[in-house]
Computed example of a mutant assay.
Amino acid sequence: LKVLSRIDSILRSPRAPPLIYRCSKGTVQNCVKENGWECGFEHLPLTIEMWADQLVALQDLHKSLRKLSLELVPWHTVEPQDNRESIRVEDLQFTVDVILEEIENKAKNSQTPSLPTLFAIVSHFQKLFDVNSLNGVYPRMNEVYTKLGEMTNAMRTLHELLELDSSAPPTVVVDTVGKLCDIINENVTRQVQQLLGTQDIHSIINKLEEHECFFPPFQALVQHLLRLLEISNVDDILPTVQNLK
Results as ranks from 00 to 15, higher is better:
Leu1Ser: 15
Lys2Phe: 08
Ser5Gln: 11
Ser5Glu: 08
Arg6Val: 11
Ile7His: 06
Ile7Ser: 09
Ile7Trp: 14
Asp8Val: 10
Ser9Asp: 15
Ile10His: 12
Pro14Trp: 05
Pro17Val: 02
Pro18Met: 11
Tyr21Lys: 09
Ser24Arg: 06
Ser24Thr: 03
Lys25Thr: 12
Val28Leu: 12
Val28Glu: 15
Gln29Met: 14
Glu34Asn: 02
Trp37Asn: 14
His43Arg: 05
Pro45Trp: 10
Leu46Arg: 05
Ile48Asp: 10
Glu49Trp: 06
Met50Thr: 09
Val56Thr: 02
Ala57Phe: 08
Gln59Lys: 11
Asp60Gly: 00
Asp60Leu: 05
Lys67Met: 04
Lys67Gly: 06
Leu70Cys: 01
Pro74Lys: 06
Val78Tyr: 02
Arg84Asp: 09
Glu85Trp: 04
Glu85Lys: 10
Ser86Pro: 05
Arg88Val: 10
Arg88Phe: 01
Val89Phe: 12
Val98Arg: 15
Ile99Tyr: 08
Leu100Cys: 15
Glu101Val: 06
Glu102Asn: 13
Glu104Gly: 12
Ala107Leu: 09
Ala107Gly: 11
Lys108Trp: 11
Asn109Tyr: 09
Asn109Pro: 01
Ser110Val: 07
Thr112Met: 06
Thr112Gly: 13
Ser114Tyr: 13
Pro116Gln: 08
Pro116Gly: 04
Thr117Ser: 12
Leu118Gln: 11
Ala120Pro: 00
Ile121Tyr: 13
Ser123Gly: 07
His124Asn: 15
Phe129Cys: 01
Asn132Gln: 13
Asn132Gly: 07
Ser133Ala: 15
Val137Cys: 06
Tyr138Pro: 05
Tyr138Leu: 14
Arg140Trp: 12
Tyr145Glu: 09
Thr146Ala: 14
Leu148Phe: 11
Gly149Trp: 07
Gly149Tyr: 07
Asn153Glu: 14
Met155Tyr: 14
Met155Val: 14
Arg156Trp: 03
Thr157Ala: 05
Leu158Ala: 11
His159Glu: 01
Glu160Cys: 02
Leu161Met: 13
Ser166Val: 11
Ala168Val: 13
Pro169Ala: 04
Val174Lys: 10
Val177Phe: 08
Lys179Trp: 04
Leu180Lys: 07
Ile183Trp: 07
Ile184Tyr: 03
Thr189Gly: 01
Arg190Gly: 00
Gln191Met: 04
Val192Met: 03
Gln194Gly: 03
Leu195Gln: 00
Leu195Lys: 00
Leu195Thr: 03
Ile201Lys: 01
Ser203Val: 01
Ile205Ala: 05
Ile205Phe: 01
Asn206Thr: 02
Lys207Met: 00
Lys207Trp: 01
Leu208Trp: 04
Leu208Cys: 06
His211Gly: 01
Glu212Ser: 04
Cys213Gln: 15
Phe214Thr: 04
Phe215Cys: 12
Pro216Ser: 13
Phe218Lys: 13
Gln219Pro: 03
Ala220Asn: 15
Val222Pro: 00
Leu225Met: 07
Leu228Gln: 11
Leu228Tyr: 11
Leu228Cys: 07
Leu229Cys: 05
Glu230Asp: 09
Val234Gln: 05
Val234Glu: 05
Thr240Pro: 00
Val241Phe: 09
Val241Glu: 02
Gln242Thr: 12
Gln242Trp: 11
Gln242Val: 07
Gln242Met: 12
Leu244Gln: 04
